[in-house]
Design a protein around this nucleic acid. Structure first.
Lengths: 163, 163
DNA sequence: TTCCGTGCAAATGGTTTGCATTCCT
DNA sequence: AGGAATGCAAACCATTTGCACGGAA
């Protein structure tokens, strides 16, 4: 079963309609391998469908996420980035704070420890979010040591200087 | 050296001024043990200083963070929550998705694995963010199994239905 | 007496909603 | 036909900025 089919099943099950827009958005979404924002995807889609509105893309991404086709993450700059996740295994992200490159990884060991920790506190673990911030090999090469300040401590707002 | 002193040193070092407002905000901030948003803290402060503006609190919290007195985290609802972190050790959060209760924890083992993972990808680790979402003992007791849906998969926007 | 801080109001920007129109079924 | 989807504009809301005034150094 592939993505379009999944979507259609989800739509049918929930009494929602199939539309050209949703199909186009899904195609465009599936054909990018990056983490896209709604804005970015909307621009991509508009390449083929100039009058497809931003809001529609936004709503579609949310829908995809509900259907289990997309996963949203907020890397800390206040905007949601979506990646397609159907038939992908769970993973977390390693993010370069300089150039923004992301690497996906998965550590069963860490997940086991998280589970263990939750249990220790009586929590029933439902999900987690983990992002490692650092400098990628390229950027570490270019940039010499400066103040190595803290992506996590300084978590700026939604404004211009964010990230 | 305690917090007020740290702040004053930071202000002096950076050519900034000491003000009554900043001191009041710091006091109020230190006297709460929760993770406060700027809004919440502003309301607390206004108890004593009715004409102290929200923006000032906002700016003060940012300042505190720069001075190393506060740490900001975004639990995923798009609003920054500050906690005081001077002379506190680093920790991550375990968050109950039902009642919002948070537990702080620290796992050296996980941190070691994160370090190791980053190195494996050639990254120079600068910081991380990790939140575990689950159901706390109390809420797990009250609520019976329903759809155990994913705080991470479904990451809603900044609007009304968020969280 | 020169910046800095404050506080209001207005701007920003991602996200969401209202609503009239158009589309699926 | 009847509910759903679309698309525009307008609303929302946390955050940020502009600016005039009062305050610290």
């Amino acid at each position: 079963m592939k993505e379009l089919e999944i979507l259609n099943v989800y739509l049918a099950e929930n009494g929602l309609n199939r539309t050209v827009q949703r199909e186009s958005i899904l195609n465009e979404f599936l054909s990018t391998e990056r983490h896209v924002t709604a804005q970015e995807l909307a621009e991509l889609v508009r390449g083929r469908h100039p009058n497809l509105g931003y809001v529609t893309v936004f709503r579609a991404l949310k829908l995809f996420a509900e259907a289990g086709l997309a996963a949203a993450t907020d890397f800390g700059d206040g905007t949601l980035r979506y990646e397609h996740c159907y038939a992908h295994t769970h993973h977390d992200h390693l993010i370069c704070g300089v150039c923004g490159k992301t690497v996906e990884f998965c550590s069963h060991e860490i997940e086991r420890l998280q589970e263990e920790l939750s249990r220790k506190h009586g929590f029933q673990l439902v999900g987690h979010r983990m992002e490692l911030f650092g400098k990628c090999p390229d950027c570490a090469g270019k940039e010499q040591a400066r103040k190595t300040i803290v992506a996590v401590r300084r978590r700026p707002g939604r404004g211009k200087d964010r990230l």
